[in-house]
């Protein structure tokens, strides 16, 4: 239960995912379920794909037709509540925010982690981006098994 443990229920998570066909292209998954006064996701998206609206307490909604999966909202979200997900070539690809040092390296194998913080498999680091405008929140491209598409949320380095 989100309210007592911080882990959203599966049904809640699924409300934020488009179907697998749409996921053939990278799409933003906004795991921000609660009305909080916040809207940088909306204002940072260059494609106007995220709407919070007039009342800043409204949870964000993604227009998957407009979302290009660029990942800009991922590092602009102060709640680190957005990831980009994609199903491609029999793999699941993600763009995730990361704020720990040392940074993982491209090609490195890391633990795949679910929303409860448990290890659920392995993942591979595809790309690490940390430009100045990202203000210290790195954007990490990572791949893992397709079965983990609704489970994976972050990585943990081995050792």
């Amino acid at each position: 239960m989100l309210k007592t443990t911080g882990v959203p229920d599966k049904a809640l998570i699924l409300t934020r995912f488009p179907d697998d066909v749409i996921l053939g292209k990278p799409k933003a998954i906004t795991e921000c379920y609660e009305p909080i006064p916040c809207n940088p996701c909306e204002t940072s998206c260059p494609f106007e794909a995220i709407t919070v609206g007039e009342d800043i307490n409204t949870p964000p909604k993604v227009d998957f037709d407009k979302c290009t999966g660029c990942g800009i909202c991922v590092y602009n979200c102060p709640g680190l509540a957005i990831i980009v997900a994609q199903l491609k070539n029999d793999k699941a690809y993600f763009k995730i925010p990361y704020e720990f040092i040392p940074m993982p390296e491209v090609g490195e194998t890391v633990h795949a982690i679910n929303r409860a913080g448990e290890i659920i498999g392995e993942a591979k680091i595809e790309k690490v981006t940390l430009r100045k405008k990202q203000d210290k929140t790195a954007l990490i491209d990572v791949s893992t098994n397709t079965e983990l598409i609704h489970e994976f949320v972050t990585i943990r380095r081995m050792r």
Partner: peptide, 8 residues
């Protein structure tokens, strides 16, 4: 909850 989830 976004902060709680981040920690979890």
């Amino acid at each position: 909850k976004v902060h709680a989830s981040k920690l979890k």
